[in-house]
Amino acid sequence: MGLPRAVVFGEALTDLVQGTPGQWQGYPGGAPWNVARALSRLGVSCAFAGSVSMDSLGDEIVAQSQAAGLDRRFIQRVDRTPLVAIVPSSRPPQYFFAGEADLFFDPQLMPEGWIDQAQLCHFSCISLARQPLAGRLVNIAQQAKAAGKRISFDPNWRNLMDSHYREQTFPTMTALADMIKLSDEDLRHIYPGLSEQQAMDELRALNPHAQILFTRGEHGMILHTPDSQLEQPAIAVNVADTVGAGDACMAGWLAAQLLGISDLRARLRFSAACASISCRHAGAHAPALTDVHSLLQLLDRNDSR
């Protein structure tokens, strides 16, 4: 079995969400893991590189990773408390994190030669704000960049991102990245008090060369390249919820390139379709390649009428 073309680093966790008072439901999730699953279902050989607990919560993450076709050699099991995101309220969003299994990921245990085969390494979310994991992942990103691999980064802002993250980790990862995705909400948190254009100028100053995919929910997205801007409207669907839509969008953008879609407008449209398909389903749904093609073909037929 060959090694994967894409390796996604970070956390996998269980979202414990309260619906009606006293009624809780658990969902496997975590932004990096969501991206990895979606990449695999979109036809890209992919691994999620992270550590999960040895209990039933970790078992479910591993089972769903296998079902999505992820390379299980990169998932590490540790006898530690599971990482959970406890969500007492979705509207307005309230959440906090507990557990430590993610922090014990050991880069030395990754399959030998993985970096030679990988074309893309993706990093995001709270794994870059939790030590000692964050330092290990930044080091991996630096090694991968030095080896000529493409680096993608989605800050995916969360409330535990402190001054160290804002002043050191975020600028370091931004400077390393070939591809950066961030939402309008991310931008407001990272650059409080600045206008959207001022914040984008600050981001571009950190990295003059990256492609920056700026997402705005139902208002679509804008791709900022070093010399142009391309807009893509959101694709309207019946929305179940928007959980994981940004992760599906990120996976769609990365997969489109790895699948050989060279035209930037076509890649944007593919990414938007992934996000919309995710929104059709409750929870962080990983869109399949056949579903994306079906939606795009439907849009083409409607456009030709």
Rank of each mutant, 00 (worst) to 15 (best):
A98S: 14
P111A: 10
Y191C: 11
L42N: 04
S127G: 15
W253V: 02
L128A: 08
D263S: 02
K181Y: 07
Y191T: 06
S183C: 03
L298D: 12
E196H: 05
W253Q: 03
R72C: 12
L83H: 07
F96I: 02
R37K: 12
P107G: 03
A272E: 01
R37C: 11
Q197E: 15
A256Q: 04
A288R: 11
A101C: 02
Y191L: 13
R80F: 06
F270H: 09
N34T: 15
T81I: 03
I115P: 14
H285C: 07
L133M: 10
A275E: 01
D116T: 15
A63S: 11
H293Q: 12
R267F: 11
L230F: 02
S45G: 08
D300N: 10
A275Q: 01
R72D: 14
R150I: 12
I61T: 05
L176V: 06
G69C: 10
P4W: 03
D116G: 09
A47V: 04
G50K: 03
S276G: 05
S195Y: 13
D178E: 13
L259M: 06
A205E: 14
T14E: 05
D55R: 01
G99H: 03
A98K: 06
R37D: 00
A49Q: 09
Q25R: 09
R136Q: 14
N139F: 00
I126R: 00
P93A: 13
D59R: 08
Q108G: 09
A118G: 03
D154R: 12
H293M: 01
P28W: 12
D59M: 13
A67N: 15
L16A: 08
D291Y: 10
D162E: 00
V243I: 15
I235C: 08
L83P: 01
D116S: 12
V62Y: 08
I115F: 07
G283E: 05
V62H: 09
Y191N: 10
R216I: 01
Q211F: 05
I126G: 00
D162M: 05
H219C: 03
I180D: 14
F214T: 02
A147S: 11
E231N: 07
N207I: 05
P226Q: 00
G113C: 12
S89Q: 13
G220E: 13
N207D: 14
H281Q: 15
Q168S: 11
Q76I: 04
M1G: 10
Y191W: 08
H285E: 03
A205V: 07
A38D: 05
P4T: 04
A147I: 04
W114H: 12
A234Q: 03
L70H: 08
Q142T: 11
A118V: 07
A286G: 12
P192Y: 07
D116E: 15
A199R: 06
P233F: 00
Y165M: 01
D106M: 05
V62T: 04
H285M: 06
R166W: 07
I126A: 00
Y165A: 01
D106P: 04
A240E: 14
Q23M: 14
Q142H: 08
A282N: 11
G148M: 12
D154C: 09
E218Q: 10
D15I: 07
S304M: 14
M221V: 10
R91H: 15
A256P: 06
A67M: 15
A175S: 08
G217Y: 07
L160S: 02
T225D: 01
A67S: 10
D178Y: 04
S127L: 08
I190S: 07
L137Q: 12
Q23D: 12
